[in-house]
Design a protein around this nucleic acid. Structure first.
Lengths: 129, 129
DNA sequence: TATATTGTAATAGAAAAATAGAACACTAAG
DNA sequence: CTTAGTGTTCTATTTTTCTATTACAATATA
């Protein structure tokens, strides 16, 4: 997997798993791949995977059963809350950054719409929603 | 200055200066504060400032004159290009992240509009374009 | 000419993150 | 009981980033 070398890998692994949970690849109660397998898949060290998982276990997103595996929480409210938080964090980040680049509120929305429209143009074949 | 501890400080300093250039605080040809003063202002080490500036000098965004100071390029086309690049990078990042959170194109735009609207509600006094 | 201010460079050390490797603990299956 | 597969923990090493400190080079100014 390709990582942004400006952000800690363990942090990007957390995002990766969050996304899998939210797009349905890892539904509530699902068993994650074994930590050693995850390390192979992501081409990182087991300890780096473990660091990401440990934090997610602590926050209640995952549960761990020694000898069995790691599992996504059954608490769907927790997952929905998680998604809301992640979406809002990303919106706030994007808004602040674009605002710092001197775009007005209206320009921020317009530029996003233009970006999506251009993206469609260059991508007539790809699957999108 | 407050830095995000998930991103290298030298990298955040680059963003900081880019933003100053684009919002007009540092117009073309402007003299930057001395590196030692910048280090004090940002409460970081001179070498960290120097690393950020060195990269911006290499890419042509700044020019350096030993004994005089560091200056923003006079090349306005370069600056305009820089802004376009930064805006597009941020749009791409936000789009990809929100898409990974399972928002459709329409939902991405709608959620941004909602975010801005809510932000206005909670901020009737602040100056905003 | 002297002094202060500027950018530049180099060395050394501290801290965080990632890796490698080994060992330990629990569970399931033969 | 033995073995394989799981999570967990630990030590050691490397790399990157940041800091601290010092020194050097070029310019401006008194």
């Amino acid at each position: 997997m390709k990582f942004d070398d400006k952000v800690p890998i363990y942090y990007q692994i957390k995002q990766y798993i969050y996304h899998k949970m939210i797009d349905g690849t890892l539904p509530p109660g699902a068993k994650l791949p074994a930590v050693r397998q995850l390390a192979l898949d992501l081409t990182v060290n087991v300890n780096t995977v473990q660091r990401a998982l440990s934090e997610m276990i602590t926050e209640g997103t995952l549960t761990s059963q020694r000898g069995k595996g790691n599992f996504v929480t059954e608490d769907q409210a927790h997952i929905m809350q998680l998604r809301t938080t992640l979406v809002n964090e990303q919106l706030a980040l994007a808004y602040d950054q674009l605002h710092a680049l001197n775009l007005s509120d209206a320009e921020i929305v317009a530029s996003l719409q233009q970006y999506i429209a251009q993206r469609e143009e260059h991508n007539h074949d790809s699957i999108d929603d």
